[in-house]
């Protein structure tokens, strides 16, 4: 069960960490759901046709970056409203993926075998759960560490946070605000694409229309309720994964319970949000971690 929890949480981690970087630069990209869908279908199509998982993942990331480029041009260059553009991108992405994915609806692919980490996977109980995972699961941990290091240790990360905090100040001391926001948005898109790729290539190895199933929205919520902190995103994503798996087990166990299945299916969504709302109530942490300029267009003088 721990194994399944980690697998279920991974696409959320990848997508949410990407979105976190985007939001830290002051750009609110609500298109994650659509980007994930496009990333998933692109990854599946390429992996299916080339028989290379990694070609698939890269295609997913490229498709995600391309989607976010549309968003970046609209909001950063043409100064369109970020919320409206993001919502439109989501709707567009879900529709586009269904259209492009039609020929692949019934296709199937061989599941990618997990990678065993020697020694560590021999630890009883947690060994197999943590260290006999897909490569992308390990990469998601590295990504978490990498994003934390980037944001809080590197100079580029400091500049990125400064841009999100006060674009006009950053401009006045000479940083290219728009270029930095472009890069952050593209990174976020690529990660959402990778999150989608994980779903269609590693998680289920197949493509079904609507398979992203709201995970993009959950990833967005995770970022906010994790108060823009990478470690909390990880915890929140596994919480979601855990509840998701438990309710599936419960439904599948055939136990005599008087709870409607619809309620159980919705459990992971609202359980994650309730818990994160509770831990993120501290006004001080929100003020210190939320990017002040989030969602506001910036036009350099």
């Amino acid at each position: 069960m721990l194994f399944a929890t980690i697998v279920a949480g991974t696409p959320l981690i990848i997508t949410a960490l990407g979105e976190l970087v985007t939001e830290k630069s002051g750009v609110l990209n609500l298109g994650a759901e659509g980007i994930m869908a496009v990333g998933a279908v692109a990854a599946f199509a390429v992996a299916h046709d080339t028989h290379s998982t990694w070609a698939g993942v890269i295609a997913g990331m490229a498709a995600g970056a391309a989607m976010s480029l549309i968003f970046a041009v609209l909001t950063l260059t043409l100064m369109a409203n970020q919320v409206a553009s993001g919502l439109a991108l989501s709707i567009f992405g879900v529709g586009l993926s269904a259209f492009v994915g039609k020929p692949y609806e019934s296709a199937s692919m061989v599941a990618v075998p997990p990678i065993r980490v020697p020694l560590l996977s021999d630890i009883p109980v947690i060994g197999p759960a943590l260290f006999e995972q897909q490569s992308l699961v390990y990469l998601s941990w590295l990504l978490m560490a990498g994003v934390t290091w980037f944001l809080y240790r590197s100079r580029a990360g400091l500049v990125l946070r400064a841009v999100g905090e006060s674009p006009s100040s950053a401009h006045s001391i000479g940083y290219p605000v728009i270029r930095i926001r472009y890069l952050a948005t593209l990174f976020g898109g690529a990660m959402a694409g990778a999150g989608g790729a994980f779903l269609s290539v590693f998680y289920t190895p197949l493509w079904v229309e609507g398979m992203v199933a709201g995970r993009g929205w959950i990833a967005l919520a995770l970022v906010v309720f994790a108060t823009w902190r990478p470690l909390r995103v990880l915890v929140g994503a596994y919480l979601f994964g855990g509840v998701m798996i438990s309710q599936l087990f419960l439904q599948g166990s055939g136990a005599q319970i008087d709870i409607p299945s619809q309620f159980l299916s919705s459990l992971p969504y609202w359980a994650t949000i309730v818990v994160l709302v509770i831990i993120s109530r501290n006004v001080q942490t929100i003020r210190l971690n939320s990017p002040v300029s989030l969602g506001q267009p910036y036009r350099p003088e």
Binding site: S166, S172, G174, V292
Partner: peptide, 23 residues
């Protein structure tokens, strides 16, 4: 741009400070 100005040796203290509050 301001970076160029600073290279030349021009510094400026703004009326409305250009500091980042959370840093």
């Amino acid at each position: 741009n301001p970076a160029h100005a600073r290279e030349l040796g021009i510094g400026m203290v703004f009326q409305h400070f250009s500091l980042f509050e959370t840093l």
